[in-house]
Design a protein around this nucleic acid. Structure first.
Length: 864
DNA sequence: GCAAGGTC
């Protein structure tokens, strides 16, 4: 039997199909890995896909021998280094004897940064990362008489194949091994590759492995250095890396440009025009001098037209322009287009992966922007028409047309550009999936259609001797725009005017403006910029940006660096500049090429890189305390939400050591004891300028951003009247009413516990009381619950306004809790909700949430 | 608790 090892499942499947003597390959499983059995000239073959790299480089366990001690650990005898640092390269400038050792436990302060030189020179081993796949691979290898490495035809593919071969050799040391190199998963290519098998290119694999090692060493050393320079507690990693740090630097650089930007004043004269007596035809007019840089000139011109009520059309110019249809999607252009529709690149890739796995779209990680000839364009359009009623009309048009697909600049042959398969029913997709799928489907159709024609009309209008203009764009021929409306501007239709017509004008104003600084990056723009600068790959850019958000170097979208992000870039720029620029990647690529060509060796290149890093460590360690301080200051600045009304110091977000929960505390602690609770489940940020201080109580107001819901602002002080109305009457007591007396239901707040509740004024007699959510402004509705007759109130919770029946045991709660599981149910309801809701909310893991959601919706009656 | 690169 011959074993074919591909990089991924889809390739293994395709190869089996293409090489098979006849018919379909047999799908099989080895342990949990899909394999494909087929025959080639009567001989039994089997193919299996890996999942990319199956081994991961790491430091040996001896260095991390105690998982608990992690980064602080060393070997028993204090020796980390094997004695195989090549001659001629600097050894660490200290001996193990000098190292401050861990007498009783861990001498963290002395040890942590001192240990970095050891790490720089530490050996690296490859550890199994995909144990299940390795198990299947070895199982098949034992039964095979030859293996053929058929991983992707690139550097990483060669490395993945080489790692796989190493695993094979562990169980079949002498098995013959070959390499098949194909650059497209099509019959001709694959057949030719298997007819002309070659040997694995170890140099190329070594080049890839060098990349792995250098990334790990630089990343681990600098990340540990930054993290430990001022340890911020677990979960506060300050990461650095060959790709992420230059990417962060791009954002910081843009922010610095904005900060350094000196706005220039300019003036505009603008107003409203309309066909005479036809205020329904209004359009914008502006002075022909779009921007006056001279204030006096602007004022002179404005003096002429101030109060003018009419003008005369002096010229009408029409000009039509064509907008060419877009090129096919590759990973980067899909990410950029989706980002413009509010889907982050990382989320785009997660959704695209799921669409790919369920057969809706083609392979999503591609550079190619040219459809291969073999792609059945008409067949896909037909499939789209059948599956999606919304696309049917435009599909018919495409099928009737000449269908000449556009071509992008990048042409590779590994995979076709991202396109819909035309299979599957889009109605079964969830919100995000459907949105992305439609984008991909519409883009595909657009690439097969003609240009759009936009007609521009420009009016020249004389108003009291001053030249004005008006401009309007109208889509006169939709072309591809019929399929692809994304980013299309709305028509600006001007009324049909001719030279000499009189137009009404009104509201001509002189506006003082300032030039704007360069715009911040959107996530889509940043992905494109990374590509331009050679940072990361199509498969990694999205996750690297996400990582920068996760470590809180970046915030918001358009992207802003945090103070921490800026401090990190500054620190590395000063002491390890190599990591902060795209040049490190460029130089690495040069080194990799040399290794691949055999002009240099892995050991030499990696050791050279280690030496470069080692050369920076003295300076880094020397400045450890300064840098630690800079990081701590930046973190405090990022955490600031306002100013303490009691002592004037900063109020910052803090984490309780005991409960791990967040709260807002004063930097003056322990001298100042001001603290505020933080709404749960929301992202809190300060409000700048106006509205930043509560006019009622002087505490800061904050902006709360709930997950995927509208942000709102509130005062942080829960006792503030803007958050709670004391002694609010929310309704009448039904128990008392039945007993023939009157009782008001009044909201109270316990002084001791801070808990809020509703109690009847005749509580001693009727015993009626209801609990309330602990936070959120309360207001009465005057309504009573249809299920139990208790009052209905509105609570402004962290996630927006929410109507509740105050009765915990209301029979209506059960149904609501079940029906609302999908997301309509608001956060605070768990606290004040029925007992059933309460117990359900305790299961907080994702899976159980999903499970109960499925269950609940299954139970949901069809009528609701 | 580290990187970046594959892909699930």
């Amino acid at each position: 039997m011959k074993l074919v090892i591909a990089e991924k499942n889809i390739a293994a499947q395709k190869i089996a199909q293409l090489l098979n003597d006849a018919g379909k390959p047999k799908n099989d499983k080895v342990y949990n890995t899909a394999v494909y059995r087929f025959t080639v000239q009567g001989e039994d073959w089997v193919s299996m896909g890996l999942a990319g790299h199956i081994l991961a480089p790491d430091f040996p366990d001896e260095i991390l021998f105690d998982k608990k001690q992690g980064w602080y650990s060393v070997t028993e005898d204090g020796e980390v280094l094997p004695a195989d640092v090549p001659d001629g390269l600097a050894r660490p400038p200290y001996s193990s004897k000098r190292r401050p050792y861990l007498a009783n436990g861990i001498n963290i302060k002395g040890w942590k940064v001192e240990s970095l030189p050891y790490l720089t020179w530490a050996p690296i081993v490859k550890k199994p990362a995909e144990k299940e796949i390795i198990r299947a691979l070895k199982n098949l290898a034992k039964k095979s008489d030859a293996v053929i490495i058929a991983t992707d035809f690139d550097r990483e593919g060669e490395l993945i194949g080489s790692d796989a071969l190493d695993m094979v050799r562990e169980v079949a040391p002498d098995i013959p091994a070959y390499r098949a190199r194909y650059s497209a998963l099509i019959k001709g290519e694959v057949m030719a590759a298997f007819d002309n098998l070659v040997e694995l290119d170890q140099n190329l694999a070594d080049a890839g492995e060098s990349r792995q090692y250098i990334d790990l060493i630089w990343g681990a050393v600098l990340t540990r250095y930054l993290t430990l320079a001022r340890f911020g507690g677990f979960g506060n990693v300050r990461s650095a890396g060959r790709v992420q740090t230059p990417t962060l630097a791009l954002v910081v650089e843009r922010e610095r440009e904005r900060l350094a930007f000196v706005p220039e004043d300019y003036w505009q004269i603008r107003g409203i025009g309309a066909a005479q007596g036809r205020s329904d035809t209004e359009f914008k007019i502006s002075h022909a001098t779009a921007r006056f840089t001279d204030k006096a000139a602007a004022e002179t011109a404005f003096a002429h037209v101030d109060g003018a009520t009419s003008g005369r059309v002096t010229a009408v110019a029409k000009r039509s322009r064509k907008q060419q249809p877009p090129t096919p999607f590759n990973t980067t252009s899909l990410q950029a287009a989706a980002a413009a529709e509010g889907i982050s690149p990382a989320r785009t890739m997660r959704i695209a992966e799921s669409l790919y796995m369920s057969g809706f779209i083609s392979y999503p990680r591609v550079d190619n922007t040219v459809y291969p000839r073999s792609l059945d364009l008409a067949g896909i359009v037909g499939g789209l028409a059948a599956g999606s009623p919304a696309l049917r009309p435009v599909c018919s048009k495409v099928l009737a047309g000449p269908m000449k697909p556009t071509r992008g600049k990048t042409e590779t042959t590994d995979h076709p550009p991202i396109h819909p398969t035309g299979q599957g029913n889009p109605e079964t997709l969830d919100g995000g999936q459907k949105k992305l799928y439609m984008l991909i489907a519409r883009r595909f159709l657009a690439t097969l259609m003609g240009p759009a024609t936009i007609e521009n009309t420009k009016l020249s209008i004389d108003v009291a001797g001053e030249p004005f203009t008006a401009s309007g764009d109208v889509l006169v021929e939709a072309g591809f725009r019929e399929a692809y409306p994304y980013g299309l501007k709305r028509d600006e239709q001007l009324p049909p005017l001719v030279e000499g017509d009189i137009v009404d004008v009104r509201d001509i104003k002189l506006e003082a403006k300032q030039t704007e600084p360069p715009a911040r990056y959107s996530q889509g723009r940043l992905v494109q910029e990374m590509e331009k600068r050679g940072l990361g790959t199509k498969s990694t850019r999205a996750s690297i940006i996400e990582r920068l958000y996760q470590v809180r170097y970046l915030k918001n979208d358009p992207i802003e660096p945090s103070q921490l992000g800026m401090a990190i870039v500054d620190a590395l720029h000063d002491f390890a500049p190599r990591i902060t620029t795209p040049e490190m990647t460029a130089e690495l690529d040069e080194d990799m090429t040399k290794v691949a060509e055999g002009a240099d060796t892995q050991d030499h290149v990696v050791d050279h890189s280690r030496a470069l890093l080692a050369g920076m460590l003295d300076t880094l360690i020397e400045h450890k305390d300064d840098l630690g301080e800079a990081i701590a200051d930046a973190v405090t600045a990022d955490a600031k939400v306002g100013t303490c009304p009691k002592c004037g110091k900063d109020l910052v977000m803090k984490t309780s050591a005991k409960t791990r929960g967040s709260f807002i505390g004063c930097m003056g602690w322990p001298d100042c004891d001001v603290t505020y609770p933080v709404p749960s489940g929301v992202k809190v940020s300060p409000i700048e300028g106006e509205g930043s201080v509560c006019p009622e109580c002087g505490a800061p107001r904050i902006k709360c951003q709930p997950f995927r819901q509208k942000a709102y602002e509130m005062c942080v002080n829960p006792k503030c009247p803007t958050n709670f109305e004391p002694d609010l009457v929310v309704g009448e007591c039904s128990v008392c009413k039945e007993a023939g007396r009157h009782g008001d239901l009044v909201a109270h707040k316990s002084e001791r516990s801070g808990k809020r509740f509703i109690r009847c004024t005749n509580y001693d007699e009727c015993g009626v009381s209801y609990p309330l959510p602990s936070r959120g402004k309360l207001s009465a509705t005057g309504e009573v619950c249809e299920h139990c007759g208790a009052p209905v109130v509105v609570v402004e919770t962290a996630r927006g306004p929410w109507r509740i029946c105050v009765n915990m045991d209301c029979p209506g709660k059960e149904k609501k809790a079940a029906a609302g599981r999908g997301g309509a149910r608001k956060g605070a309801s768990a606290k004040a909700g029925s007992r059933a809701t309460k117990s359900a909310s305790k299961t907080s893991s994702k899976t159980s949430r999903t499970k109960s959601a499925t269950k609940a919706s299954a139970k949901k009656p069809a009528s609701s």
